[in-house]
Amino acid sequence: MDSHRQETYSLSQIKSLHELKQKLKSSHDPSISIWSIPLLDNESEKSDLILLKFLQARDFHVEKALQMLIKSLSWRKDFKADTIVDEELGFKELEGVVAYMQGYDKEGHPVCYNSYGIFQDKEMYEKFFGDDEKLQRFLRWRIQVLERGIKLLHFKHGGVNSIIQVIDLKDMPKQELKAASNHIVSIFQDNYPEMVARKIFINVPWFFSVLYSMFSPFLTQRTKNKFVVANEGNVAEILYKFIRPENIPVMYGGLHRTYDDVQNSHPKSASEFTVKGREKVNIQIVGIEAGSSITWDIVVGGWEVEYSAEFVPTAEGSYTIAVEKPRWVPAKDAAIHNSFATKTSSGKMVLSIDNTSSSRKKVAAYRYVVQK
């Protein structure tokens, strides 16, 4: 569902909404709420939108949507989901690694990244999944991350009402995490209907079909239709279709770092470009005055190209300065981050991407800031 498109509903669907509200009103306290939004507020489009999510999840079958909502309200009470955001659960070492909210997609949806490769280490696995108590604590932390993402949503027609999930399958110990995966999928589907606009699976291995069959029985067809798949060779290309490079972590072919000189200096938004097969691209950043410094980031999805940077002074007869000598950049490398200061000469910076040894097209991006 496109959150930014004004939703239109048939008369029968509007009738289902009113019927659901009446049934809910007759069986529950009028003050019931979810995500701090009163569900029976007749003047609130937020409550209507939430109820419509439950109806859509059950194909507008009122009784099924009502039962789903009642069970979800009960689960939230037992799980203490309304206060989970502020809890200290002791998962600092997993934040920013296993599951975390980072930036927005091109339509404004918050993006949640998920990666479980760290748990192929037996000590890490035992630490967080060694027994049922640890598993339940991990699930609570994972719900906490999701609830933080939901707090970023608008809950209004034409607004941003769902998130994007990027799920990294690289090195994921599929068999060991089977129980946790099933729990997470089940909780999300039963209690967070229509909260995910798109699921992007990246670094998909050859055994993905086996992994998919593991949790496929827990998914509705509507959920399956939101899936996008990227193998290890085209992660950046797929992500660029939905998310701007400055919002994509460097490990996935983007430009975002947790601590970044360029970002802290209010840089321009990233500029995307394509490097065709057998092509060399020169990016020229002109108008760099004497006494200035320039800081830049540049990334090529999958790299496997030759990269160099040089400063070309404006003054006639001046020598070009090799800031970074030509070097081969392997696929595993993250975004390049560098800076150069010119004391006496004005000129331009030329960043070169040489893809002439490959026939494959690559997506790329760069950004920079010039300071006195």
Rank of each mutant, 00 (worst) to 15 (best):
F340G: 00
V305M: 07
V300N: 02
V229E: 02
M251V: 13
S339T: 13
I298N: 05
F340H: 06
W303L: 03
R327I: 04
K241R: 13
G317H: 09
S345V: 02
H337W: 10
A335C: 10
L239N: 05
R244L: 11
E310K: 13
A236I: 00
V228G: 04
Y252G: 06
G233F: 08
T295K: 05
S346H: 09
F273R: 07
T258K: 15
W328K: 11
K241F: 05
I248V: 11
Q284V: 15
S269K: 14
T344G: 10
D297N: 09
I285K: 10
S308Y: 02
S308R: 02
A322Y: 03
N338Y: 07
A335G: 09
S271T: 15
N247V: 06
E306N: 04
I336N: 01
M349G: 12
E324N: 06
R327N: 06
V250L: 05
F242N: 12
Y307A: 01
F242Y: 14
I288Y: 08
T258V: 13
E279W: 02
H337P: 01
G301Y: 10
V299P: 11
D297F: 03
S339K: 03
K276Y: 10
S345R: 07
V323Q: 05
A322M: 04
H256K: 15
H256R: 15
N338I: 01
E272V: 12
E289W: 09
G301F: 12
A309W: 00
P313A: 11
T344N: 13
V229F: 10
A236Q: 14
A341S: 09
M349Q: 11
T258Q: 12
V312C: 07
V305T: 08
T258L: 13
H256L: 15
T314R: 10
V329I: 13
T274E: 10
S293N: 10
K241S: 09
I283Q: 14
F311S: 04
K280I: 10
I336F: 07
G347M: 03
A290P: 00
M349L: 14
V286M: 14
T295G: 01
T344D: 13
T320V: 13
R278G: 03
F340P: 00
P330D: 00
A309R: 00
G291P: 00
E324H: 04
Y319E: 08
Y240P: 02
Y307W: 10
A315L: 07
F311E: 03
F273M: 11
P267W: 09
G317V: 05
S345L: 11
Y240I: 09
P330G: 00
A230V: 03
A334P: 00
G287Q: 14
L255G: 11
K268P: 03
V250I: 14
M251F: 06
T314S: 14
Y319Q: 11
L239S: 06
N247I: 03
T295A: 09
E279Y: 01
Y252F: 15
S271R: 11
R327K: 08
L255R: 02
S269A: 15
I248Q: 03
N282V: 08
G254Q: 01
G287K: 14
P249F: 05
V275W: 04
Y240C: 07
T320S: 03
N338M: 08
N234S: 07
W303D: 06
V299A: 05
A331S: 12
N338E: 05
V275F: 06
K325M: 04
W296F: 12
A322N: 07
A270W: 01
